[in-house]
Each structure stands twice: as C-alpha cells, then as structure tokens.
C-alpha cells in the first residue's frame, strides 16, 4: 500500500518507539506528526497511522476525534483560535471574536475563501493572566485587543504564513 505519509514521519516515530512500553502509546505523537504533513488529517493519513501502529483504522478515528487539536477537516494556512473562556471573556473576548468574524468575513468555524484563515473558538488556553489570548497556529498571542488583533491579521494578509 502506498502511504500518504513521508519518510520523515517514520523517521520521527522511530526515534520515539523506545520511549514507550508499547506501540499504541505512540498514537497521539503519531497523529501530531502526521498532521504536520498536510496541516490536517485526511482519511488516508489516519489509515496510514493505523497501519503503522498496527490497530484497526476505526480505533485511530476514535482517538483522533476525541481531541480538538486534530483537524479532521482541512484548515486555513493560519488557524486563529480565540479563547472565549471565563478569564478571556471577562476581558472582552466576545468583542474580539465579533471583530475577527467581521474582519475576515467569515463566521467562527469557517475558513476564508482564499484558504488563508480559519477562525475558531478555543477553550481556556492557560494564558488567563494575559487575557484575552488566542493561538495562531502554534503560537500564543496574548494581551490582545482589537488593534492588536487587527494588526496581526493585516500582517498575515501581507506577509503570509511562515512555515
């Protein structure tokens, strides 16, 4: 079977194998690694992870769908996840979300037509003392306000996303 995952996936996994008493424990790391390849996890990737781990494909789907960080649908190049939980909410996260929706002309949960941005609502990120906060792909952006968010989005629109 031709695998949709690169050699790098298998090399990275090889390094981790000795760190766990069994292969199933590698499911989470493997899904993280596989997601790096396309930014999300197509069915073919999930099947390849199942084959690598040696479990039924359904078992991988079961695990992957439990965790919010595994994207089972395609996402934009820049995934903005705005925290709207208590601490951020007290500091104006709802207004930020409203602003982002207007600015990007999409609703929360959607991706812009050009595929550049996906906007999501996020549960507490653990940045409460620097609220409101968001995750922009793997990075935290903290002590946000509308100006800061606007500038951040503008910067991405102009300069794109560094990979």
């Amino acid at each position: 079977m031709s695998t949709p995952l690169s050699n790098k996936f298998y090399e990275e996994m090889k390094k981790l194998e000795s760190r766990y008493p069994n292969k199933k424990a590698l499911i989470l790391p493997a899904l993280h690694q596989a997601q790096k390849e396309y930014g999300w996890l197509p069915k073919e990737s999930l099947a390849a992870v199942a084959e690598y781990i040696g479990v039924h494909e359904a078992q991988i789907r079961e695990v992957a769908s439990f965790y919010t960080m595994y994207n089972l649908k395609p996402v934009g190049k820049m995934h903005l996840k705005i925290c709207t939980n208590v601490a951020c909410c007290l500091r104006g996260a709802d207004e930020l979300m409203g602003f982002a929706e207007k600015k990007l002309e999409i609703e929360c949960g959607e991706t812009t037509k050009d595929g550049l941005f996906t906007l999501s609502e996020e549960e507490c990120l653990g940045a409460c003392t620097a609220a409101p906060a968001m995750m922009a792909n793997d990075d935290y952006v903290e002590e946000l306000d509308i100006h800061k968010l606007n500038a951040y989005i503008e910067k991405i629109k102009e300069g794109g996303v560094r990979s």
Binding site: K43, A58, S65, F66
Partner: peptide, 22 residues
C-alpha cells in the same frame, strides 16, 4: 477481538458506529 465499533467525537456528540459506513 476486533475494534470496529467505536465512539467518535465526544460528549453530547458521540456517535457509536463503524467508520465510513464500513
């Protein structure tokens, strides 16, 4: 001995199913 029935999603949205109509 086959993990073909699974719970996908979580919480209130859980669907107990086989995958992709298998």
């Amino acid at each position: 001995g086959i993990h073909e029935m699974v719970a996908v999603q979580r919480g209130n949205n859980i669907d107990i199913t086989t995958i992709d109509g298998k």
